[in-house]
Design a protein around this nucleic acid. Sequence first.
DNA 1: TAGCGTCTCTGAAACGTTTCGGAGCAACTT
DNA 2: AAGTTGCTCCGAAACGTTTCAGAGACGCTA
Lengths: 336, 336
Amino acid sequence: MTTLRDVARHAGVSIGSVSTVINNTAPVSPALRAKVLLAIDELGYVPDAVARSLKMGRTRTIGLILPDITNPHFAAIAGAIEIACDAAGYSLLLCNTMDNPTKELRDLRLMRTQRVDGVILVPGVGDGDYIGELNRAVSVPIVLIDRTLPGLDFDAVVLDNRAASHGLVDYFVRSGHRRIGIVIGPPGISIAKQRLEGYLQALADHDIDVEPAYIAHGGFQPEPDYHATAGLLALRRRPTAIMSTSYHTTIGVMKALLDKGFRCPNDISVAGIDDFVWATAFSPKMTVMAQPIADMARHAAQRLFGRISGAITGPAEVLVSPPTLLVRESTRPLVD
Amino acid sequence: MTTLRDVARHAGVSIGSVSTVINNTAPVSPALRAKVLLAIDELGYVPDAVARSLKMGRTRTIGLILPDITNPHFAAIAGAIEIACDAAGYSLLLCNTMDNPTKELRDLRLMRTQRVDGVILVPGVGDGDYIGELNRAVSVPIVLIDRTLPGLDFDAVVLDNRAASHGLVDYFVRSGHRRIGIVIGPPGISIAKQRLEGYLQALADHDIDVEPAYIAHGGFQPEPDYHATAGLLALRRRPTAIMSTSYHTTIGVMKALLDKGFRCPNDISVAGIDDFVWATAFSPKMTVMAQPIADMARHAAQRLFGRISGAITGPAEVLVSPPTLLVRESTRPLVD
DNA sequence: TAGCGTCTCTGAAACGTTTCGGAGCAACTT
DNA sequence: AAGTTGCTCCGAAACGTTTCAGAGACGCTA
């Protein structure tokens, strides 16, 4: 590995001068610059970010901690953040928690030892203990995305989850449905809680009594949500419409319908939260509440960069993004 | 940020002793250990990986460069590699090339300045220039995954692409099809080339003449592959079966069928390469050649770790993994 | 008692940068 | 002619670790 010293020696100048040329942090004579550039080229010198980070006290790296990169929803977040990082000159350290609190804590600590300049975090189900650890664990700016945490003032950018499920219920009701089921995730996760609240509020707004059996708890995973849906379908008076509350949930729901022999939308209407490229490639094309996921991720990244640079100060802000209803073919008006 | 020095001072011992305790790299008295551990705890000291990396000459970080994390196929790779890294005590630096050679080169260089210990790379369409740069750009072990590069001896783990498309054609022929179309990606990418070869070879093996019009070139992206498929469907004597050669391609193909009013498999059979969770959640459930993607990724990671540690030496090896045919409902025997 | 291992621990050098006080020199001002 | 200013460039300190030669203390043997 060739170092600054090698370049300096080869060019016959001082180490400091080479550094100045590389970062052009001060005016230098054309002659010096030429000599240095030539030496760099001849030796194939590449600066050492590790040494640089040590000296500068910052790594130009941010950490991204999310539950599961395999989930297209989080992959979309990761993709948008990577682009933002690239544009801003940051590197990206990726961690997958698998919704495992222990792993999440480990990842958080990793961020600390790795001295990242900031963290973008999709928090999992953290108990009080976890939140304390979180506050302690990281001494750099954090911005939350997608999910949020109670009693924590971090910058955050999230979907208007209540509006999303409220809107879905509204749409169902407008189409004549009144027996509306929901497949929802674990209540420990903020979005599950909020999406359920939106559902309940919407029913109340439409003067529809809540039927507890219509609320099926899954796990935001295809498998448990499949079974949750199966439960809904086995009901004597089953719902005429089901709302799915996440990408993975939608897979579970649709799989259950297919396996149990229900046609969608003929026998039952389904709408979900989260859009995806293949939502229009198969039958039925899915009616969904789409979230501006790329924008949200971009915004989270910008906010983090602002915090890091000090351009943004002041109290934490949470940006709530509005969802968009995309009516397609998995839903239809209820005709008696 | 509290340092080793702070801990040492607080515990009333030398810096070196603290280091030895932390890494227990030499025997120390119980008393010393206790004092140090207490001080670490009281000060909330966290070791600085940057300084450590500088001193040790390695970062315990590997780089992952792939075309598009948003593509579930690559996301699956990333997920499996993250798990392997976590288990082996490595951090993961993620880069998205978007199949842009310029960006890919930039990412490669980033790996070098970041002093990662190794790189796992899904190479894009690189010309000769690129390969030279690649060799020069990185001085650490590289292992290729998914795609490969001509005239480059890096460790690699790839699918048996010829067998995958050959097997798909075999299956179609066994089902009575003889007019078999293919939607294929850009020939610059190794897997596109190999998958096309498998297709051609299989046709030859079955004594079926190649119909050039049945070979539709897309881009391994939903959009161009949609149009490529539309071209196939507009043929006077259109294929009775279409094989899709990637995840994104399958989306394009199925979307085209849906939009153009063809029912699958009734009007036309479709089978693809790459399985995905939602392949069984919608209609039709897709017949696919699945690849053992998680195993492949794990293997790539292990191979890289072995190269880094020096446990693996010798010439580059490429591991070719066999695909598995999963017959579902997007294909059916041809009845005349 | 002197010499010698053994066991702990200390202190300093080194990793590759950035940064900054100051040296050297030429061109001005007075 | 002496002093001042401005422009380049140099050299060394510092960032937080790891590592290693060696200092001290202790118990043993001869």
